[in-house]
Each structure stands twice: as C-alpha cells, then as structure tokens.
Simulated scan of single mutants.
Amino acid sequence: MKTGVLCIHGFTGGPYEVQPFVDFLHANTDWEFVVPTLPGHGETLSLEKLSAENWMMEAELALRQLQKEVDRVYIIGFSMGGVIALYLANRYKVDKLILLSAAAKYIYPTQLLQDIREIAKEAMSGKLEDNNLYKLYRAKLKATPIHATLEFMRLVRMVEPYYGQIKVPICLVQGKKDGIVPYTTAQFLFDQIGSEKKELIYSEVGKHHICYSDDSEDWYNKAFQFLMEEEVESIGSN
C-alpha cells in the first residue's frame, strides 16, 4: 500500500514550521509528502482579503489530490493546521492524525509574558536586534491584519463542535513552554476527541514551534512509531 502524508502549517507561518519533522519522516520512509502553502502565507504574508474558508479549501484540495495518488493518508497539522486537520478528518477518510501544538485554544499569557520579559531584558542591554523572538513577533505583528486574526479565531470556533465526531487514531504533541497555545490545550483535545486510539506526547522544553524543540528527536521517534503501527498492522493482515 502506498502512503501519503499531508502536512499543514500554522497561522501566519509556512511549510518551514513542519519541515524538520517532514525531513525526519522522509529519511525513514518511502511515503509521499505534500506540504502546501496556505493562501496569503509563507515567507511573505499577504492576509488582507483572505478568510478561514480560503485556508480550509486549500488544504482540502491538497488532500483530495493526494487521495487520488495513494492508498492511505496521514495528516500532520501544526497549530492552526492542526485544527484544519481535524476539520478534514471529520469530512474525509483519513487513516491517522498527528497534531503538533494544535491551536484549539491560543495565547498562553504566562509563557508569553516570560518571552516578552526576555525581550525587554535584551532591549535594556542593547541586544534587541539580535533576539530572534523579538524579530519573529515584530515581523508578524506588522504583517498580520486584525481581520486575519479574527478569521483564524473563527476557524477554531467552526471546528470545535465536531471534536467528538473525530474517530481516527490520533497523536497529539505539545510543548510545555508554548507561548502561543496553552500546553493544557493538548489534554483538552485529548479528552474531547472521540477516537478510541489516541496518544498524548509532551515536550518538557518545547515552545510553540515544536518541530524545532531541543528534544525534538525524542518525540519524532514516538510519533513515527505511532504512524508505523498502522503500517505494521496492514502488512500483518495481508
């Protein structure tokens, strides 16, 4: 059986957010990977006239195309991409889901304040321009219209009533130092989702961009084992 993997990035992000995990899986499998850039996203943001439906439809089209080419489909969704993955799994036949820092809830004030304190300290010592966190916040704040943020929030609300209808095997990965999504979100989703087979993996040091966490190799391997169980079961039944 041929396996395809659809990977969906987050709000204001791009394929780079999931690329390290994609590279890991690519090196260990012969699976086919599709990593679309959602409308208005990527290295340069252009989100002014776009809606939640635009982002959902782009992912939906990518999934439909992939389904024509493979026998089995897994979806990996990061942040907002995790919410879109749930939307797709409720509408289409999907074999497994991996949700990374899924944005079912967002903005964790405690960690965000800690990050901002770090920025403030460096500002006082004249190192602000060297702070990658500051550069990230500054660039995104400038390029993200309020309209787009409201559309992101609307997307989350649209999908939330259907969590209990999700039945496919699912693995959630969440960093405990996430400054955007409260790390308790993963447990909330775990409890709400209707799947019988589900796993929850925490990264003790992971921030929001979990694919770049210092302990990423640990959870890469656990998530890979979760996906490979399906492959082994399929081979054993043939």
Rank of each mutant, 00 (worst) to 15 (best):
G4H: 02
G4N: 03
C7E: 03
I8D: 02
H9E: 08
H9I: 08
T12Q: 07
G14T: 04
V22A: 12
F24S: 10
L25Q: 00
H26C: 15
T29P: 12
E32V: 11
F33T: 04
V35P: 00
P36F: 04
G40T: 02
G42T: 02
L45Q: 05
L45R: 03
S46P: 04
E48P: 02
E53C: 03
E60I: 01
E60G: 10
R64Q: 13
Q67E: 14
K68N: 14
G77V: 13
M80Q: 03
G81K: 00
V83L: 04
V83T: 05
V83S: 01
A89N: 00
R91H: 10
R91E: 03
D95R: 00
A103Y: 05
A103C: 09
Y108H: 15
P109M: 14
T110K: 14
L112I: 07
L113G: 13
Q114M: 06
D115F: 04
K121Q: 08
E122A: 11
G126W: 13
K127P: 01
K127D: 08
K127W: 09
E129K: 15
D130V: 01
Y134D: 11
K135T: 12
R138T: 08
A139P: 03
L141G: 14
L141R: 14
L141D: 09
A143P: 05
L150S: 07
E151G: 04
F152D: 07
R154A: 08
M158W: 06
V159I: 13
E160Q: 10
E160C: 05
Y162K: 13
Q165H: 13
I166A: 04
K167Y: 04
K176C: 07
K177F: 00
A186V: 09
L189W: 09
E196Q: 15
K197I: 12
K197T: 10
L200W: 07
S203R: 03
E204V: 14
E204S: 15
V205T: 13
K207R: 12
H208I: 04
H209C: 04
I210Q: 00
C211Q: 00
Y212S: 15
S216V: 05
E217C: 01
N221R: 15
E231S: 10
